[in-house]
């Protein structure tokens, strides 16, 4: 976003420290709101990797959130600890992404987006109907942590914060790596990428697996945090839609975009919910339309344009 790398790293570390200590200064309500924001930022990063950087819109990415949540619920229901079940949840999501990804990642553009919705819908039905394992459409409960609510919420706040930081850092490192150039080339021109020696199928499948990994961990944390989940809730296409909007508003293909977008959208909908209770859907819809119209590159894109313009102006002044 800004040009000085050291300043950036410093600002980010200060930001993380502020967030670590924030729960001491705000109410429990806001701790929960910000935990949700972190969660949305993680899911949105998964979408950003696929869509913002690689050009494949994973409209059905909520399925990995659902898989993560349900594997956690089932595993903990069988007496496993959360930390034992977490790798299982992530591994299952990765397997699902590879199994589904191999056939559908051959599809371009619209078709890929739609196929993932179809898969998400089919998985939802499976979870709803496999009542004996999943508890069916009525949902299922998880063990509750035996501590005061305040301590529990702080625990999830910190866990979600850590997940967001790790996700963002990992994706940042991926984007700067050889693999990152590979996936960005796929977005830029898949045919050219292929002719340059990039195994596009391999890159697409791996990118989706990484996306699935982080999304499923967010789902696992969410399930444990809520201690009750229903299939319609964790496989909701709205999760993907919200996080796509978040990515667009923050700035697609920008590493801090999803985080900024998650804060803007979530805080905005807090305000909308409380002030326009009956019209919150319409206000949200109109807000999205306005943002898509007037800030098409997202907030980070708009800032980058502003900085670029200012630099050009400065350069002109100097040359005069």
């Amino acid at each position: 976003m800004f040009n000085n790398k050291k300043v950036n790293i410093f600002l980010i570390i200060v930001g993380i420290i502020i967030f670590i200590f924030l729960p001491r200064f705000v109410s429990g309500y806001w701790v929960r709101v910000i935990t949700t924001i972190f969660m949305y930022a993680v899911i949105s990063q998964g979408i950003n990797l696929m869509s913002g950087y690689m050009g494949y819109l994973p409209f059905g990415n909520a399925m990995f959130f659902g898989v993560g949540a349900y594997i956690t619920a089932i595993g903990m229901g069988k007496g496993l600890s959360f930390l034992a079940v977490l790798p299982l949840a992530a591994l299952t999501a990765i397997l699902v992404s590879i199994l589904f990804g191999l056939p559908v990642l051959r599809l371009r553009g619209h078709y890929f987006a739609i196929a993932t919705i179809g898969m998400s819908g089919a998985l939802l039905s499976v979870v709803q109907n496999a009542t004996e394992i999943t508890g069916g459409a009525m949902g299922t409960t998880l063990p509750i942590i035996d501590k005061s609510p305040e301590v529990t919420y702080n625990y999830f706040y910190l866990a979600m914060l850590a997940l967001m930081v790790i996700t963002t850092l990992t994706i940042y490192l991926i984007i700067k790596s050889k693999f990152g150039f590979g996936i960005r080339s796929i977005k830029a021109n898949e045919e050219a990428a292929n002719s340059m020696g990039i195994n596009t199928t391999y890159h697409k499948v791996i990118a989706w697996a990484i996306s699935a990994l982080f999304t499923s961990i967010a789902g696992a944390l969410y399930a444990y945090w809520m201690s009750f989940i229903g299939p319609e809730e964790v496989f909701d296409v709205m999760i993907a839609v919200n996080t796509i909007v978040i990515m667009l508003i923050g700035g697609a293909g920008s590493i801090l975009g999803p985080i900024i977008g998650a804060f803007v959208i979530s805080l905005l909908s807090e305000v909308v919910w409380s002030t326009f209770l009956e019209y919150h859907l319409a206000v949200l819809g109109i807000t999205i339309i306005i943002i898509v119209f007037f800030v098409p590159k997202g907030i980070t894109g708009a800032i980058a344009d502003f900085v670029k313009k200012r630099e050009l102006r400065l350069r002109k002044k100097v040359s005069v």
Partner: peptide, 26 residues
């Protein structure tokens, strides 16, 4: 917005759905 590609039209028509849905509910 059509030149912005599928992400934009998807999100826009989704926003429209929210607006129409809200009107119907109201």
């Amino acid at each position: 917005l059509i030149k912005g590609g599928i992400v934009f039209t998807l999100i826009l028509t989704f926003a429209l759905r929210l607006v129409i849905e809200n009107i119907i509910l109201k």
